[in-house]
Design a binder for these strands. Structure first.
Length: 683
RNA sequence: GCCGAUUUAGCUCAGUGGUAGAGCAGCGGUUUCGUAAACCGCAGGUCUGGGGUUCAAAUCCCCAAAUCGGCUCCA
């Protein structure tokens, strides 16, 4: 066994030294060395390594140091928590992208903001004392005895899940001479040499989290925090968080009067005129691209007989996310039958029927209808409505239909996750031979669209078959293969996500990185052999025989709602001229200039521009402030000079003051920028 | 759905058991002004909804809803 041989080797070779000793020999300054990279692994300075292994110090400023530092901060936090709140058990506490967390099982309730402040204070004190971290390898039985003795049930469970033969390591920190003693955790490491390296720690929030992420297991208390080598780095991080808060699309949506929510339609956005304008502009732009790329747009119903979704498999596989509406008539009829049955309680047959009405799900009045959560099934009906020829393929059907999906209360979030939305959805019906070309063409179109919006970093993921799925394994094999092949051919780097595919087919996911470094999934293309099968779709091939088409589900923006939210945050509410609901506003210096300002506004509006007018009694400064807060691309000042010369003095959102220009020149300036972008080919 | 928090005027928020407040926005008036907030006044509230405790509830307790941060799930 590898583990025991490693131990045996180390016994034979007592010359194994610690990286600290080895680096000191080489005269390396160790003051800011957090850990070392030793033959591809990150290890502590005090963990002996095999002689001759390549050592590369990781210094505090190195990005790789952050994870080590934060994981150590999690230990310090757990130590403090267990001292302050006796009886609390520890579970796991990893470093994450933005910091770290530790999950606790605390018998006497949840942690409050106040608790966080208290814990943070104690952590700082411990950091200041600069106590060392020490690693110790022990055998499994000793570790079990240790944690069982401390009553740490979760640690014992983790211990049991460590594969036999793997080394069991403990980490201690603390001052044995002090009253607090040392604190020990079952941990793989590595850790910083001593608490001094945790330059700046901050606890950020508390949350519930299931043990091992499983909603059937106990709910634990998770404390989130973050740590940086210096106070400056922490301050920078907090500033970034504030920036994200400033850009929050929910806040911008309210401030810029784009959309709102109401508790009578939870998680279903209402778009105000300005928001609706942006929304429609996005759709119109995509529509224009469709015309160039051989798509045909269709309109399909909202509500269907249940048989549509029984055929597609949605009622079986997607039921928990579906709205199953009914009609007043159906309810009244059911109620009538129920009343009649209850009025004749001596009739066993009627009583039985009443019982069935009460059971609702057995009664035909319920679940007769289904609100569509996806467009694909109705597109299958369109395909099937007459005989199709191979000459018609690929048939690309686009649909901006409104979709409704019931999402659990805790998961909805602004525009990012809603219950009513539309996608830039299209389905491509094609022959198996056409798949690769279609995926390639889509890929090209998608990258062009993202670049047009300023999303330059795109990550591609290949989501493979999930557990709950329709279709045979052979179909899945073929589908997964073809997607992987196209990606490999086009040379797009990608990551595989096992188990993440849709229930009807594997998919490519396209994730963009926004202006402040966050990643969002937007587009997707999904391969589907199953739906054509279920709907019995066929086309006549060159051979005169019937063949089954393949279906590709694809979207570039994803949901228009979600895209709008992400894009608003990407541009911090500063919509470009082509999308801005109000492209410019004429503001007057005083009310004397109102007449000329109205004339200028009318002229611009007549040229198709979206121009507002502020001729009110406020001072110029106030009007400018208001226009700036509304993030208007341009304002144009009108005072005595402009009225005299027949000009406007524009002020641009980005460039600031511009020289006075004629009204026609200003119109030209706006018109050139009002042109929607053209998706550029990949460089 | 689960854990925790929040909900007071259109918006942002103060008010912790004893007569509901501020700023901004709105409306009216005064001012007619040159690049991020003129001045004065007026109006605006079943304190999210329902139930309870109390002489008395925005405030304490219970139930529900919505929202926020997470978990789980996803476009």
């Amino acid at each position: 066994m590898a583990g025991s041989r490693r131990r045996a080797l180390s016994m034979q070779r007592p010359e194994r030294l610690t990286p600290r000793a080895l680096l000191q020999e080489r005269g390396v300054d160790l003051r800011d060395v957090v850990a070392v990279r030793a033959g591809g692994r990150v290890v502590d300075l005090h963990t002996p390594v095999d002689p001759g292994v390549e050592l590369e110090p990781i210094r505090a400023a190195d990005p790789a140091a952050l994870a080590v530092l934060r994981h150590s901060a999690a230990h310090v936090m757990a130590d403090v928590v267990q001292r302050l709140y006796p009886g609390t058990q520890v579970t796991i506490g990893p470093a994450i992208d933005s910091g770290f967390y530790y999950d606790f099982d605390r018998p006497d309730g949840a942690f409050t903001e106040r608790d966080l402040a208290r814990i943070e204070k104690e952590m700082r004190a411990l950091v200041k004392r600069d106590v060392p971290f020490v690693r110790e390898e022990v055998d499994r039985d000793r570790a079990r005895e240790l944690f069982a003795g401390m009553g740490e049930r979760y640690k014992v469970e983790i211990l049991e899940s460590i594969p036999a033969g793997e080394a069991i390591s403990l980490y201690r920190h603390g001052a044995p001479e002090s009253k607090a003693g040392t604190w020990v955790d079952l941990c793989e490491g590595p850790h910083v040499p001593s608490t001094r390296f945790l330059g700046a720690v901050k606890l950020t929030s508390v949350a519930g989290a299931y043990w091992r992420g499983d909603e059937r297991r106990p709910m634990l208390q998770r404390i989130y925090g973050t740590a940086f080598p210096t106070e400056e780095a922490l301050a920078e991080h907090l500033a970034r968080l504030e920036e994200a808060q400033r850009r929050d699309h929910r806040k911008l949506g309210k401030e810029l009067e784009l959309f709102l929510f109401h508790e009578w339609a939870p998680a279903m956005p209402f778009f105000l005129p300005r928001g609706a304008h942006v929304y429609h502009s996005l759709i119109d732009w995509i529509r224009g691209l469709y015309r160039q790329h051989g798509y045909a747009e269709v309109i399909t119903p909202q509500i269907f007989d249940r048989r549509l979704f029984a055929t597609s498999g949605h009622l079986e596989n997607y039921r928990e996310n579906m709205y199953l509406p009914t009609t007043g008539d159906a309810i009244d009829a059911a109620r009538g039958r129920l009343d009649a049955a209850l009025a004749a309680p001596d009739e066993p047959a009627l009583r039985e029927r009443a019982a069935r009405v009460l059971l609702e799900r057995d009664h035909p009045a319920f679940e007769q209808l289904a609100q569509k959560p996806m467009n694909c099934p109705s597109h299958c009906l369109l395909f099937a409505h007459r005989r199709r020829s191979y000459r018609e393929l690929p048939w690309r059907v686009a649909d901006f239909g409104r979709l409704h999906r019931y999402e659990r209360g805790g998961v909805v979030h602004g525009l990012a996750r809603v219950r009513s939305f539309c996608q830039d959805d299209a389905h491509i019906f094609c022959t198996p031979e056409q798949i690769a070309d279609e995926v390639r063409a889509f890929d090209e179109l998608l990258f062009g669209v993202y670049r047009a919006f300023g999303f330059d970093r795109v990550a591609v993921k290949l989501a493979l078959r999930p557990e709950q799925r329709v279709g045979t394994d052979e179909l899945w094999d073929r589908a997964e293969q073809v997607l992987e092949q196209v990606l490999t051919e086009t040379g797009v780097p990608f990551e595989k996500l096992p188990g993440e595919g849709a229930f009807y087919g594997p998919k490519l996911e396209f994730h963009v990185t926004d202006a402040i470094g966050r990643s969002w999934q937007l587009g997707t293309i999904q391969l589907d052999y199953a739906l054509p099968e279920r709907f019995g779709l066929e086309y006549v091939g060159t051979d005169g025989a019937a063949h089954r088409p393949v279906m590709l589900h694809r979207a570039i923006l994803g949901s228009v709602e979600r895209f709008l939210g992400i894009y608003l945050e990407h541009v911090a509410g500063k919509l470009p001229v082509w999308l801005a609901p109000e492209q410019a506003r004429i503001v007057t210096v005083s009310e004397k200039h109102a007449e000329y300002a109205a004339l200028a506004r009318d002229e611009l509006v007549a040229r198709g521009l979206r121009v507002g007018l502020d001729a009110g009694a406020d001072k110029l400064g106030a009007k400018i402030r208001e226009a700036r807060l509304a993030r208007l691309p341009y304002l144009a000042v009108v005072g005595d000079d402009e009225v005299r010369d027949g000009t406007l003095t524009p002020r641009a959102r980005e460039e600031g003051d511009l020289p006075a220009m004629t009204r026609a020149a200003f119109a030209e300036l706006l018109l050139t920028q009002a042109e929607p972008p053209r998706p550029a080919p990949r460089p």
